[in-house]
Design a protein around this nucleic acid. Sequence first.
DNA 1: AACATTATTGAGACCTTATCTCAAATTAAT
DNA 2: ATTAATTTGAGATAAGGTCTCAATAATGTT
Lengths: 146, 146
Amino acid sequence: MQNSFVQEFDRFLQEKKLRRTPERFKILTEIKKIDRHFEADDLILHLQREKIIVSRATVYRTLSLLEESNILRKFRFDENHFHYELHPKNSHHAHLVCVKCGTIIEFDDQELEELQARICREYRCLPVKRTVEIYGVCAKCRKKEN
Amino acid sequence: MQNSFVQEFDRFLQEKKLRRTPERFKILTEIKKIDRHFEADDLILHLQREKIIVSRATVYRTLSLLEESNILRKFRFDENHFHYELHPKNSHHAHLVCVKCGTIIEFDDQELEELQARICREYRCLPVKRTVEIYGVCAKCRKKEN
DNA sequence: AACATTATTGAGACCTTATCTCAAATTAAT
DNA sequence: ATTAATTTGAGATAAGGTCTCAATAATGTT
Ligand SMILES: [Zn+2]
Ligand SMILES: [Zn+2]
Ligand SMILES: [Zn+2]
Ligand SMILES: [Zn+2]
């Protein structure tokens, strides 16, 4: 089941007549080892630590491909870099982000599914995706403050 | 009523013991002339056209102050620059963004108010703000495609 | 009004993140 | 093995925004 990402990527590359290079698979394999949300820099560090030598350009290019193939989801919180996460199929979710410590809590957003559908119907818009982020001070940080 | 933004900013600056410089007010005045959403670059262009000479650094610094004083709201859509808009008090709204032409449609998100409250209660989180963006292909762009 | 104090400004350097360029290396088809 | 087309890596470049610091200007005090 974890490995299905590799198969999926493989299929994607074949379909698009792109090449199945070792670099691409090494990167995906490393991503699987990282916990849910990560940034490009995290990934580059992980690769370096594992002595997997891949250029920064290739990392970014592969991230794009993984996004295109719906294996990764790309997010932007209030910072100026992106976050990525392995895309759990069929499971849209939204984020609760602590403005103090940066902790990201995920929550299910079934009712947002309906909101999106309704709004798009109303404006005759073809829905593509959505981002829903709530920012606040998490329980831990609130304790610390008091 | 439009002018209340200036008064509000004035009050904010006084309270924070910041200085009420001509630059700051010229920038806010220019912002009021721009339609709803704008980017820093838009603003800088507008100022140049009106021969209002203010440095880029000051524009950015003033934008921060205006955000801090809740006169502006700062957004990031899927691009890598920010959007700003005059913050219509008490009127939260969310955005529907066309992925083809970039058109931004605003919609009311009263029901998201409740979602935010509920989620924050659940995670004992103190809500600060939220961003809700739906991306899709707008009616116009869909027509063009067919 | 002049002074002292402190904040603000502007010009350009700098930073971060990400993308682009192009020659060299690799893949995959024949 | 040969060939054609894609991919890679190193470093240049771009975009967007922030920082630095000397010069300037606002405010409070006399
Ligand atoms: Zn926190
Ligand atoms: Zn997530
Ligand atoms: Zn459109
Ligand atoms: Zn808006």
